[in-house]
Deep mutational scan, measured.
Amino acid sequence: MTEYKLVVVGAGGVGKSALTIQLIQNHFVDEYDPTIEDSYRKQVVIDGETCLLDILDTAGQEEYSAMRDQYMRTGEGFLCVFAINNTKSFEDIHHYREQIKRVKDSEDVPMVLVGNKCDLPSRTVDTKQAQDLARSYGIPFIETSAKTRQGVDDAFYTLVREIRKHKEKMSKDGKKKKKKSKTKCVIM
Rank of each mutant, 00 (worst) to 15 (best):
I139Q: 02
H166N: 09
T148Y: 06
V103L: 14
V8T: 15
M72R: 03
K175F: 14
E107M: 12
V29D: 13
E63Y: 03
S106H: 12
R123W: 04
G115A: 09
R97N: 05
Q70Y: 12
E37N: 00
Q22D: 15
E91R: 10
K16E: 01
Y4P: 15
E63G: 10
R164F: 07
H95G: 12
K128W: 04
S181R: 12
V125M: 08
Q70L: 05
A66G: 12
K117C: 13
S106F: 08
D33M: 02
D57K: 00
S122H: 08
I46S: 12
R68P: 14
V160H: 04
V125R: 06
R68F: 12
G12P: 05
L23A: 12
K5Q: 15
M188W: 06
G48Y: 06
S181D: 10
I93T: 15
G151E: 07
G115H: 11
S122M: 10
I139C: 09
I36N: 02
E62V: 04
V45K: 10
V160K: 11
Q150C: 09
P34E: 02
D108I: 04
T124P: 08
D173T: 09
K117L: 15
V103Y: 08
D126N: 06
A18V: 05
K101E: 11
M111E: 01
E3F: 04
L120I: 05
R102G: 05
T158Y: 06
Y71L: 15
D119G: 12
Q70R: 03
V125D: 08
T127S: 07
S136R: 05
Q150K: 07
S145I: 15
E98P: 01
E37Q: 00
E168M: 14
K175E: 14
E76P: 02
A155P: 08
Q131D: 10
T35H: 00
D173N: 12
E49K: 14
A83E: 15
C185G: 11
K167S: 05
E62K: 07
G48I: 03
L113K: 14
S181W: 10
M72E: 07
G48F: 03
K182E: 13
G48Q: 10
V29I: 09
I187G: 14
L53T: 05
K180I: 08
S17C: 00
H94R: 12
M170I: 04
Q131T: 12
D30M: 10
F90E: 11
L19M: 14
I21M: 05
I36F: 11
F90L: 11
D30W: 06
E76S: 05
Q131M: 09
G174D: 08
Q99S: 15
E76F: 08
D173R: 14
I84Q: 15
K104M: 14
R102D: 12
G13L: 07
L113W: 15
S136A: 12
D54G: 01
H94W: 13
E37R: 00
A134C: 10
E168Y: 14
F78A: 03
T124R: 07
D126Q: 06
D105I: 09
K177R: 06
I100C: 13
D153E: 08
Y71R: 02
M170W: 14
G12A: 10
L79A: 06
V112F: 04
D30L: 10
L133C: 04
E168L: 11
Y40I: 00
L56E: 15
L23S: 13
S89Y: 02
T87E: 14
S145R: 12
L52F: 09
V109G: 02
R161W: 10
I36C: 02
Q129K: 14
A134L: 11
I55T: 08
L113A: 11
R102T: 10
S89V: 10
K179W: 04
P121D: 13
V29T: 07
F28C: 02
V9K: 01
P110E: 01
P34R: 02
H27A: 14
A130M: 14
L79F: 03
K182R: 04
Y4T: 14
M111L: 07
K182F: 14
V29G: 03
S171M: 05
T58N: 01
D57S: 00
D132L: 04
R41Y: 02
Y157C: 10
K177L: 07
R161A: 02
R164W: 06
